[in-house]
Design a protein around this nucleic acid. Sequence first.
DNA 1: GGCAGATCCCTTTTT
DNA 2: GGGATCTGCC
Length: 670
Amino acid sequence: MKLNPAQEQAVTYVSGPCLVLAGAGSGKTRVIINKIAYLIKKCDYQARHIAAVTFTNKAAREMRERIAQSLGKGEARGLRISTFHTLGLDIIRREHKILGLKPGFSLFDDQDSLALLKELTEDEYDGDKDLLQQLIRRISDWKNDLITPDKAIGLAQDPAEREQAELYGRYREHMIAYNALDFDDLIMLPTLLFATNQEVRERWQNRIRYLLVDEYQDTNTSQYQLVKLLVGERARFTVVGDDDQSIYSWRGAKPQNLVLLGKDFPQLQLIKLEENYRSSGRILKAANILIANNPHVYDKTLRSNLSYGESIKVISANNDEHEAERVVATLIRHKFMNHAKYKDYAILYRGNHQSRLFEKALMTNRIPYKISGGTSFFSRAEIKDIMAYLRVLVNPEDDNAFLRICNVPKRGMGPATLEKVGHLANRKNISMFAACFDSEIEQRLPPQAAETAMVFARWLVELGDRAERGDTIAALRDLVREINYEDFLYDTSPSPKAAEMRMKNVSELYKWITAMVEGDELEDPMTLKEVVTRLTLRDMMERNNEDEELDQVQMMTLHASKGLEFPYVFLVGAEEGLLPHQSSLDEGNVEEERRLAYVGITRAQQELMFTLCKERRQYGELNRCEPSRFLLELPQDDLEWEERKAPPTAQERNTKGKTNIAALRAMLNK
DNA sequence: GGCAGATCCCTTTTT
DNA sequence: GGGATCTGCC
């Protein structure tokens, strides 16, 4: 496939820092793939000196597959393609000594962190969920801004913030005691390390000599700093991004980093990709008109080189259940008329909970579907159990994991026993696991309980030895067998069928671990320690992607849809309060919601269908709904409102238009 | 210590 | 409306 002139320029400009502004569907992944190949084949870069960074595992996997196709396997050897977080993990793993971490550190996911913070704040917050949520958010913001607890305390403006900063400090101390890291640490630690340690920084600069960053608009402060420190003075890098697709500001992403880049690297080469190869002219026009309501730093207009296409449908339904039925009915008819496949259709929604009714409607009609995201594999209880066992094996300091498993299945270590073990651990400043071996344990616990704890701990040590010494996979199999996990599942599941499902999940996990331990052409074999941290990042290569070949309707959130494309798209729940989401309206962040709508629209290749309800059930209550303002912002001549729902009057459109322009002005004046 | 029923809170998006 | 957590009874 030939590149267009702008793409060609983006690929071959390698002599300095390069920013590629890539509109939706303008072939940015292609540019990255081609550029990597160009660097290796034409510029004498070795694959192992090139790193490409993405935000999601999915994107990384896709890139890996496509690069494997265009390069020989040998040529791609050593090429780093990973998410920011996996790159951070790699760095930490290699530099863990300097960072003061013991090998086999645990990675806490959100739930783990939440549990720890909940415990730490019991006195202060007394179980107030709101305050807890604020604290978590605050800590994450601090970490994303590279602010340590000491600094946070210094910066505190009021007593409440001071308290948060102190809790942040306690949280960090406990994490250190557990030999554990959270997601934000994966970026913050390497960045701080590079910032303060020249030798390490230079080592990594030497290791990564050309850096490519995908979805650059999603970087937060610490990620941007990491990029800057990695590229150093040499400044050999390419970042690809689109400010109109910035939809992650809620987790600290700073689209302003696009502007900062120009300031920090005055020699920055700016290249715009404005030719869209994905969507019909009409869909693209709608997207352009919608996003024109947002302020812009760099102007950019996407041009379609496809035909104008079908009109955009707006389907209205009486209520949310009806909405799902209408989508399914429309889909069935449309599929028949167009000889399409199920996998050509995507149902995109704002929040995960919306998937449920569609799932139900699809199921009753026997239509195969696949939900991406949502309750992930790794949040299932059985997977968390086994993972917790592995975490303790790998990192005995991990009290959280220990607590999860010490009585699963029941082995007589109930709350009373645990409380005493916990106290002992606390007083002696050792892990609970270590406390099970402590000389005092026999004085503190009733003989039976002390015996149980010691037997359990000894068994763990012995199993850990087995895994360490020889056959990791056999040890894993032993683990599941020796705790009688299967029986446990049958005892605790509501039905034998559910138990069977859960056991299947365990086997699936087992399969992934086996694959990772053994390695393959692209990935080196890993130790159990590595596997455990990697799995918390969910960075398995999804070897079971036979799924993708299956003919299934695709369902996902708008966020999850970024980077994907589908012939026919249903954008459901186009209502005030849902698509501009109420909480965003409250925070005055309509622009990000508009970008989210923009992302959804630009996923569609041939046809786009919006749906909305007159009323919707929320928290069990029935509420009236208004059409999304974004629908009113679209070019009405290109919309086809279905059913009795009248299109908006000229007046309605005018008022909407005026408020928007006023808002836009206010924004620009700021 | 385990289970059924009651109660509570929630739903924005993710590595 | 539904999943997670608590309560009170066995």
